[in-house]
Design a protein around this nucleic acid. Sequence first.
DNA 1: CGGTGCCTTGATTTTCATCAACACCTGTGG
DNA 2: CCACAGGTGTTGATGAAAATCAAGGCACCG
Lengths: 248, 248
Amino acid sequence: MLCFDKVGAGGALKVLKRLDESLLTGLAPFRQMSRAEIRAVLDLAASRRYPEGSTVFAAGFPAERFYLLLDGTIRVLRTTPEGEQIVVLHIPAGQLFGIAPAIGATTYPGTAVAASEVIALSWPSRLWSDFTARYPGFGLQAMRTIGQRLGELHARIADLATRQVEQRVAAALMQMAAQGGRRTTGGGIEIAFPVTRQNIADMTGSTLFTVSRLLSAWEQAGLVASRRRHIAVTDPHRLMLVASPPPA
Amino acid sequence: MLCFDKVGAGGALKVLKRLDESLLTGLAPFRQMSRAEIRAVLDLAASRRYPEGSTVFAAGFPAERFYLLLDGTIRVLRTTPEGEQIVVLHIPAGQLFGIAPAIGATTYPGTAVAASEVIALSWPSRLWSDFTARYPGFGLQAMRTIGQRLGELHARIADLATRQVEQRVAAALMQMAAQGGRRTTGGGIEIAFPVTRQNIADMTGSTLFTVSRLLSAWEQAGLVASRRRHIAVTDPHRLMLVASPPPA
DNA sequence: CGGTGCCTTGATTTTCATCAACACCTGTGG
DNA sequence: CCACAGGTGTTGATGAAAATCAAGGCACCG
């Protein structure tokens, strides 16, 4: 947990106290900035808390702001014309998101919801060009982030197209564990945000039922442990073998 | 077909004659450039012909050049660790591709092969930063292209995750027809580059056999017509209904 | 303590991959 | 000119994977 002054629940309030520069110093997009520059950037930022399950921005709406995730996890959704929703990706703390302005878009291409309680900074989109012009490292890192997400999407497509459900679910668990995971006693990794079977189904293009069966089987076999809405990978090595079986 | 001097088959030769400025004037990334600027850019470009099926660049290799597709269609592939290959997307004439430098990557994330005979310009990657710095419209359009591809990838993922094979194949045909299609007599659209059933299977995460069955059925029903390696959509409207059935 | 959201398990059905066998087109080299 | 080989496309039979349907249990919250 970051040290942070919580603001009143649900309000779109800026924090009253000045944000501390140390919040940003370690983060990739700001690594090349001086303390004074970070101060300037912070003074332009709005800070806000989003309760679990709330929507930060919705697909198709004007991209008025771009965001930096300080704490928590963001789930990016996309809704098909038929109304089914699928989870496109998860964003871990420290990354920029909602960066439509970077790709010349004026509306958000996806919906961002808080997978856990979330704290995020945001800036008006018109500042994007200022930021990239003034701080070269910022634009570069933003591009890197986009490149990385492109790579993830390619990998997801390859997964969906070639692997079976069992492998996809295992891979999804491993990815969540790797991204937002806490070590537990005994070499296991606990996923840091709440996940339901339905969520996993939405990630893997599967169903609630199938995911439930797989998790039950894996729990029997000692690969995972799950409580209501929480999953821990107790044997990452063996689960990895399920996700991508050795070619032999 | 563009008016163009063909170079000797298979050689990595630059064309001897100067390239004409009109080649680029209509294309999005160059639209804001003056004739003199386009001249300067062209003089730095290498032009080359790639025979059908040849590889322009391969995934994982150093991204030494970036490309502009003048004529033909590029198929972007990705190979899974298990060795299966899937078609990630198609790129139509007029677009930039291999733009790893734009996202701060030093190796190509995917493999580009010529789906039909292809003519492309290319520049060394180190010129990327020059181009974007000197010609603001160029960088912006490149970002737009990336944004658009992100959108396509999202859509592909949603498709793979929620639709059945029949709908995916229909959607793939529609997309190819829309992107690189020639009107035929009678309201039909012919896909402009050679496609095999296996190609379509690789796009949709399906199999040769299933695709063959679907195409046979659609041909019976008068939705498509196919010769060896060539497919025409004869009834786009009805095929669209197969791709995304009305919610009712 | 009742209700809602989350999870489980079994039975049944659908979809689609897999396997097998063959027909066809196209270019090549005798 | 013909034979043939390799890439391409078809079709049927079979089986496995996973969705769907049905019914109920369990945790958490007011």
